[in-house]
């Protein structure tokens, strides 16, 4: 295989990296999309991802099972989401203050726990077994990077379909949208805004936790403090730009995943670019997209506002 850009090695590394870095963004972005739809701006998602990453890694390391790790990751995200739901949805406290608090708290707690448990050994998980899809996984270049992955990748992709169906075809989707756009109307129709929002926040927690767990267990194979490094915030942007469409979250997640994994891919291709420059790419892309499509980034009308019945 030749060196340089557009060589097979570069492309495989880029696509594989885009998937590896994109899946956590996809899972978290889909979760955030649901809660934004319902009117809760979940700034705490960064913390939920990090907590999921820690819980997933610690469990997978302790038990040797990735599936138990994913379960623990989801539970980790859920715990923070329960706090978020209690404080922001039930009590109507400021969503941004609580979101920052949860992120800071998760930063601190996971770093402390990591220090106590892993800081002397820095253990790694063994290489992940993959589920090769017969036939498809033998396509050159695309095959190994897309169709020979851990099953969780397929679960994440499948959830795009499920959510699209949910938003378009079901009452649940309508209720979510009403909770974010016109909570009064939902309330008048006899459906509780508070419980609709509570469920959506809890769902976000589970998805963010899964995303974090994937990042630590499969993406990196190791847990390091602050490892999410802003991925949760990118997920928020993805959800904002996707305007309620899960497929757009998927496209965005893989685009950002590709720009996140460009450093490694470029090195494989024999080009050396300073890491700091490449690290700017995803954030630069967000800003460019926002500048270009600024007017189209619409958000639910009641986003960020607590719902109090009868209050104007």
């Amino acid at each position: 295989m030749s060196q340089g850009l557009l060589s097979d090695a570069f492309l495989i590394s880029l696509i594989a990296g885009a998937v590896a870095a994109g899946i956590p963004l996809l899972l978290a972005g889909l979760g955030e999309q649901v809660s934004e739809k319902a009117g809760v701006l979940n700034i705490g998602i960064e913390g939920m991802m990090l907590f999921g990453a820690y819980a997933g890694f610690a469990t997978a390391f302790g038990t040797g099972s990735l599936w138990l790790g994913f379960l623990a990751g989801a539970a980790g995200g859920l715990v923070l989401a329960l706090l978020m739901a209690l404080f922001c949805v039930r009590l109507g406290l400021n969503q941004i203050v609580i979101g920052i608090a949860l992120t800071l708290g998760a930063d601190g707690i996971t770093a402390l726990l990591h220090h106590v448990q892993f800081s002397r050994t820095y253990p790694r998980l063994p290489r992940v077994e993959t589920l090769d899809i017969p036939g498809l996984s033998e396509i050159p270049i695309l095959g190994p990077s897309l169709f020979a992955r851990h099953p969780m990748v397929y679960v994440a992709l499948f959830s795009v379909l499920v959510l699209t169906w949910l938003f378009r075809k079901t009452h649940v989707g309508l209720n979510l949208q009403a909770a974010g756009d016109k909570p009064d109307a939902l309330d008048a129709a006899g459906i509780s805004v508070v419980s609709t929002r509570t469920w959506s926040v809890l769902f976000t927690g589970v998805m963010a936790g899964l995303g974090g767990a994937y990042m630590a267990m499969i993406g990196a194979g190791i847990f390091v403090p602050f490892m999410t490094g802003g991925a949760g915030f990118i997920a928020i942007v993805l959800a904002m730009l996707a305007r309620g469409r899960p497929l757009w979250v998927l496209i965005g997640a893989f685009l950002f995943g590709a720009s996140l994994s460009l450093t490694t891919a470029l090195q494989v291709g024999g080009v050396n670019v300073p890491t700091d420059v490449v690290q700017m790419l995803p954030f630069l892309m967000v800003m460019i997209v926002l500048v270009l499509f600024a007017r189209r980034a619409s958000l639910p009308a009641a986003l960020g506002l607590p719902y109090v019945r009868g209050q104007r």
């Binding site: 203050v97 609580i98 920052i100 608090a101 949860l102 800071l104 708290g105 930063d107 601190g108 707690i109 770093a111 402390l112 220090h115 403090p225």
Partner: peptide, 11 residues
């Protein structure tokens, strides 16, 4: 990092 936890709790 304990200070981070304290600040979060305060919030």
């Amino acid at each position: 990092y304990f200070i981070l936890v304290l600040v979060a709790l305060m919030l």
